[in-house]
Design a protein around this nucleic acid. Sequence first.
DNA 1: TAACCGTGGCG
DNA 2: TCGCCAAGGTT
Length: 320
Amino acid sequence: MIVVIPPFRRWAGGSDRDGRDRIDPAMPETTLAAAAIRWYDENARDLPWREPDVGAWAILVSEIMLQQTPVVRVLPAWRAWLSRWPTPAALAADTPAEAIRMWGRLGYPRRALRLRECAVAIVERHSGVVPTDLDALLALPGVGTYTARAVATFAYGQRHPVVDTNVRRFVARAVAGEPDAGPATRPADLVATEALLPAEPVRAARASAAFMELGALICTARTPRCADCPVTEVCAWRASGRPAPTGPTRRPQQYAGTDRQVRGLLLAVLREATGPVPHERLDLVWADAAQRSRALAGLVADGLVELVGDACVLAGDRPG
DNA sequence: TAACCGTGGCG
DNA sequence: TCGCCAAGGTT
């Protein structure tokens, strides 16, 4: 396996004179981490899942909810969810339908289903305690590379690179000098971010939180606030004159007129309903019958909806 | 790898 | 107005 030494190693360790090619545990933490943490100490948002006494379950719930969903919309949903289901066991004992209802309009309702499956798995495999092991976390439904590392890091203080879209963008700019990150997280992104982390685990966790916060508040996708950035002195993107993205811009995902919109409309009706919803009621939400039935079939296949005779209910809802 | 999977707010 | 974006995961 060929290991490519990224150019930021030139200054990542604070010294490049010995030409070292691997991270020395005793090496002082990176310029980026130190500056980011200093900034984070003064500028971090007061988000409830960052409070010191918050448990792993609450952090896991926040991470799932925050997938592709802005913080402001997650805040009330997170409070309501944990108030109702303070433990994995509590959620595991309830129906998918209630989880889907509680999810409200956060979007991507399959996450509600997976979060409940996650709770079931935690009860069955881990005695109701969110596992600490990275591989055990990765094995949970709805938990991928980012979420597993985020929980292991922020809930348990382990030292892992935590790479979300904010961190990818921040590292792509500050370290690689690129105007934006690639569309998906790659192993190389984990390697590049890991190289920036302080050696001490709890401080590494703080660095990860700081990188994420910088990406969310300063090193934003559209209009980066470089004037307020704590690492602007060492930012490779700024040093090269903030070049604009060159390659083909990936087209944004479509929504209007797609099956996803129809699924959303159908599920909104079922969420509000107290009993089984006749097909005639669902017919009202979308004119195209073929697309309507395709969307409904998708909801059923995903386990969000069940057919009860000539009507529909959220999965697990009692027909009567 | 790329398409699929919601929803709402903002520039 | 409407394209773009928001703490991804799954297939």
